[in-house]
Design a protein around this nucleic acid. Sequence first.
DNA 1: TCCATTTTTATAATGGTTACAAATAAGTAA
DNA 2: TTACTTATTTGTAACCATTATAAAAATGGA
Lengths: 136, 136
Amino acid sequence: MQSIIDILKENDIAPSMQRIKILEYLKNYKTHPTADMIYQALADEIPTLSKTTVYNTLKTFTEKGILMALYLFSNEVHYEYNTQPHIHFQCTKCNKIYDLYQSFDHYNNDLIDGHKITEYHINLKGICKNCLEKGK
Amino acid sequence: MQSIIDILKENDIAPSMQRIKILEYLKNYKTHPTADMIYQALADEIPTLSKTTVYNTLKTFTEKGILMALYLFSNEVHYEYNTQPHIHFQCTKCNKIYDLYQSFDHYNNDLIDGHKITEYHINLKGICKNCLEKGK
DNA sequence: TCCATTTTTATAATGGTTACAAATAAGTAA
DNA sequence: TTACTTATTTGTAACCATTATAAAAATGGA
Ligand SMILES: [Mn+2]
Ligand SMILES: [Mn+2]
Ligand SMILES: [Zn+2]
Ligand SMILES: [Zn+2]
């Protein structure tokens, strides 16, 4: 069980208070937040927090591979703490983003038509279980 | 063999010169252009063309299902004339976007974990055949 | 403590996109 | 055709997410 500070140190990132809180947030709340959502969530706890710091930190974390940047169905970038490969599903009714752990054949195939594949991003759209039930 | 004008009329869109040219461009050049790329490409031919018209037109076409909006690995929206389902692959070296016609199992599965799936967007990243050969 | 370096912050700038309202074009009835 | 109504295009300003910049603050070592 790795602490937030350990993760930062292992990646040669000085564990400042802002960085700890941002990574902690992403590790605890797996809601695929945007930079603004993270800023809003932490602004109370860290009144001096700057949105630039959030952007800088997310950039650093992403470059180090601690976070994954998600380009879903809008111009906003969503972020998540990197775990195992999985699929994203966004509900068109409630906009909630779900993680799906379906296994896809081609996760294990790294050459298609001669192109070397390094990343798979599978984004599904539809109506989630909750919204389907409500709609009845 | 359906003409551009027919496609527009079938979708209850008046076939103005701007709309014809924009749809024609997307039908002929399958390069997944952004709004700005389309504007740049047509600006010579239609000197009075406004970027707003390009955006309005792309929005109309997308709402009618004539075009597909693609959210790949940036904040810019790419557009393409809707054909059969396929996968996108973007090269990290040359940024070119490739269409791949791999068949994925789950194209035919419309219910995952109780969620109703209506759209599949599979976006791959890596190094394309061309760039691999150049890199040798 | 002093000083150099890192990190954070506020502000301005950028870039893609949208809102708005005026100008133009198209369609229709007399 | 004209007069009038509606649809479409256009230029401009606004918007919003993100990035650049430079000053302020914090950190860490000599
Ligand atoms: Mn996820
Ligand atoms: Mn395509
Ligand atoms: Zn839902
Ligand atoms: Zn390439």
